[in-house]
Design a protein around this nucleic acid. Structure first.
Lengths: 249, 249
DNA sequence: ATTTGTTATTTGTCCAACAAATAGGAACGC
DNA sequence: GCGTTCCTATTTGTTGGACAAATAACAAAT
């Protein structure tokens, strides 16, 4: 159920009427808190507020949107959790942008194991971004890209822990995705980082990284450099599929 | 390791003491809400709770952790925002794992004033998700998918405004992406909705929707049904490229 | 068996009060 | 003038209580 505010859902039909009968007031379909979050977001966008600017105080928000302070506080709690505002007593709420950090926090949350479905979906996504994208990749890749990728790959050879190795592995794949020159795709890839790291770690030991992974990467780069579509697709696909071998649950 | 949800707040010096002096009670450095979030997280991991299991009611949490209900509610609001629990009246809080969707949400905050670069990137992304994905699409598509897609497409014929038409257009493409059965991909597609709608609206009038767009969709579906790769890629690619024709800025 | 209505429980919202933190100014001393 | 200390007003943090809204579980009626 789409109980969240992730879907704008215009729904301009003014069927029900606001109880407060304030002229020009929006009709609320969702909860008061979710409505308020939308209002505050609008306040930020339409007011052109930037990082460092202040939001109105809780009391002012209560008055402006005709709502209780607890509702305001729950809305602010959402924005705080999103990493969009930072609140301190007396000084109030100032706008920040720590969303990327928050995205990573979500999965360092050890309380919940990442589900197998999420793993499967993410690997499918990667397959699209790294295998099926070969057309764009071949189109845009430069000699500098290849050189940098080789550079990153070399770091496998003198790495100590599996965690460090998985970081390098991720850097390699991120750099590859970056070749496409598409910021939206790159951002999405970065958001998936925590899960991708878990996949990489689960599948490999340090030895594996410095031998198998290293040579697979090399083969992938060779195919990329030669614009050998069949080879690239085959190598990259089996490279990604390797992440699944160590799944049992 | 960012220990807190808000501000790390290093300050490990245990200068202050708990005022309640309850024996065995933890000394709280952070806020009551953050403490409670930690407690609930501990409750989840130590209790081995999985997706689908229920958490105690708000009242029980109040009693168990000696805190007020508003504090409990703010803590639950954090967990809800993390996508870790889903709360419904009467039923209470049930553990879920929607963290990936929430992570993608974070990044969907800038919907106002999209730059041309963003437009280009999003269209490139769509091209990957809808054109380059043909392998997966052909693999997973069913007769029901095709039927539903035709159903959605038919709605173009009796639509009044361009805004309504663009909604249908988006539904069509979303349903197509859903064929892949990958939740992560679908979530990403959904957060791109505001930008995609703008692209669709900018490129078309109502007439265009009910004629050109409708027939292009039909051709795409035919190619999809026949598993005609070349035709599908060509039709879909030119369909998406059409969105660019009306750009001038 | 299905529908309809009732009830008890749980979450949603609002209010009022007080505690804790602190920015900003006042008073003071040098 | 300049810095320090103290005070105060403002703002957020927490709690408890009250009522509304939603709804699962059950009972009653058809």
């Amino acid at each position: 159920m789409t109980d969240k505010h992730d879907i704008p859902a215009q729904e301009t039909s003014a069927a029900e009427v606001s109880k407060t009968t304030e002229p020009g007031e929006r009709v609320s379909r969702a909860s008061a808190v979710d409505d308020l979050v939308d209002h505050i977001r609008a306040l930020i966008s339409e007011g052109g507020l930037k990082v460092g600017d202040s939001l109105p105080t809780e009391k002012e928000l209560c008055e402006r949107f005709h709502t209780g302070r607890n509702t305001v506080r729950e809305a602010m709690r959402i924005l705080k959790t999103y990493g969009v505002v930072k609140v301190r007593p007396k000084v109030g709420a100032v706008i920040i942008d720590e969303r990327m950090a928050r995205a990573f926090d979500l999965f360092s949350f050890n309380t919940l194991e990442v589900s197998r479905e999420t793993f499967v979906d993410i690997q499918g996504f990667r397959s699209l971004l790294e295998v099926a994208s070969f057309e764009t990749l071949f189109d845009k890749v430069t000699a500098e890209d290849i050189a940098e990728l080789h550079q990153i790959n070399k770091e496998f050879l003198n790495v100590k822990t599996a965690v460090d190795a998985s970081e390098i592995d991720f850097r390699f794949h991120t750099r590859l995705v970056a070749v496409m020159g598409n910021k939206a795709i790159l951002d999405v890839y970065k958001i998936m980082k925590p899960v991708i790291l878990k996949i990489m770690l689960k599948a490999k030991t340090v030895q594996t990284f410095s031998t198998v992974t290293y040579s697979e990467h090399t083969e992938i780069l060779d195919a990329l450099e030669k614009h050998d579509r069949a080879a690239y697709q085959y190598k990259m696909k089996s490279h990604l599929d390797a992440g699944f071998r160590h799944f049992s649950d």
